[in-house]
Design a binder for these strands. Structure first.
Lengths: 203, 203
DNA sequence: TACTAAATCAGACAAATGTCGGGTATACTT
DNA sequence: AAGTATACCCGACATTTGTCTGATTTAGTA
């Protein structure tokens, strides 16, 4: 036996690579890749990897191996061109473009929004950028949020001064917004993206 | 038969949903979901969807349905904390963090790099931002590139003036870099990202 | 009505696939 | 020497899965 200690690692590396590529391998594909003459050899390595928590397994279905903790399972969130009034759900329903995210939204939903205007340019958020948003009705002081102002979604930094809620643009040319009505927050921005060349490819 | 015209669409929606969730369905899973009493019913819808180009199929393996054009098949690129000298390949080998991208790199490889310094701040690239890079040895005038300067990777905009190559920061506090030796370009920046809260989750 | 095309169903087969019981060899421990 | 754990192998079985042939139903049309 020339290489013994490294076999387990090679199995893991191969499975991980296949999962990240989008197609978890079958047990026999692992067997062939590693050169085992018995299925059981691959199976035992996989079992051991699952037992040690480095892999997870969903039922006894084919290609059922995953990376733990939903890691590596990129999800897609809908890209909304614009959001108006309270039609967030409807806007999400009708959209046909998605962007891949590796963010974990937990119980909440996520969506993406294309930024209009340069009111956040000093925060490095340029017109045309895409923000990834975690849908939630509340946010804390200092967080960048998507809020409804005049029935249109806008990206601003939330400030709370003396118990009063303000929306601060990060551009000296724009005024601070002090909402008269209770502010409707659509979500909190968790990521900013800029595609420098290719368009977003609709999924 | 109450709903007939919509069945094809329902099959497509289901398959797409499953693919985006990371696990393409088997033919019989489609059958069960749609309530068909025959496998063939699901099979024919799938064949039709493939024939019309709305789905793609890889060989006669299980769970072999994909969205066309590698769309929806998010891949992961390695996140490099720093790149020095010519050790790009080695740096990629050793990394343990990945970020999900929906960019299509074609034949080329992609990687991600954390930006140091504020030399590109006027281009909306802040310190700590992550750039997604398409590995390529050449770039065109005006493109943002990752290049080796003093054996360290740096992000700058490439300018070609009178046949001379220059690296322009987008921050008036920094000088234009005019490389003495032939410039070594690691790749072209195709995307800029900023995670506002959570750390990158290692994959 | 007769014809046609599409959709669905019925049944089946071969290959792929997950799983299991038991065997062999090696290294290490007691 | 005996025991034990690990890694690997052999053969096999039941499901799952992709695929095929043919029949039935339904809707539309000449």
């Amino acid at each position: 036996m020339v290489r013994k200690g490294g076999t387990r690692e090679r199995v893991y590396e191969y499975v991980r690579k296949r999962i990240l590529e989008g197609t978890p391998p079958t047990v026999r594909e692992v067997q062939r890749e590693l050169g085992f003459r018995a299925v059981q050899s691959a199976q035992e390595h996989l079992d051991a990897l699952v037992a040690s928590g480095r892999l997870e397994k969903v039922g006894r279905v084919s290609r059922g191996y995953r990376l733990p903790g939903s890691i590596g399972t990129a999800s897609f969130v809908p890209l909304l061109g614009s959001v108006q009034a309270g039609e967030l759900s409807e806007a999400i329903e009708n959209l046909d473009a998605y962007v891949a995210v590796d963010h974990d939204f937990g119980d909440r939903r996520g969506f993406a929004l294309r930024v209009r205007g340069d009111s956040m340019i000093d925060a490095g958020i340029l017109p045309g950028d895409i923000v990834i948003v975690c849908e939630q009705p509340h946010a804390e002081n200092g967080e960048v949020v998507v809020a409804l102002v005049d029935d249109e979604a806008t990206v601003k930094r939330l400030r709370i001064r003396d118990g009063r809620v303000e929306l601060h643009p990060e551009n000296r040319s724009y005024p601070v917004i002090v909402p008269a009505d209770p502010l409707r927050i659509l979500g909190r921005v968790v990521e900013v993206r800029r595609y420098l060349e290719s368009d977003i490819r609709p999924v």
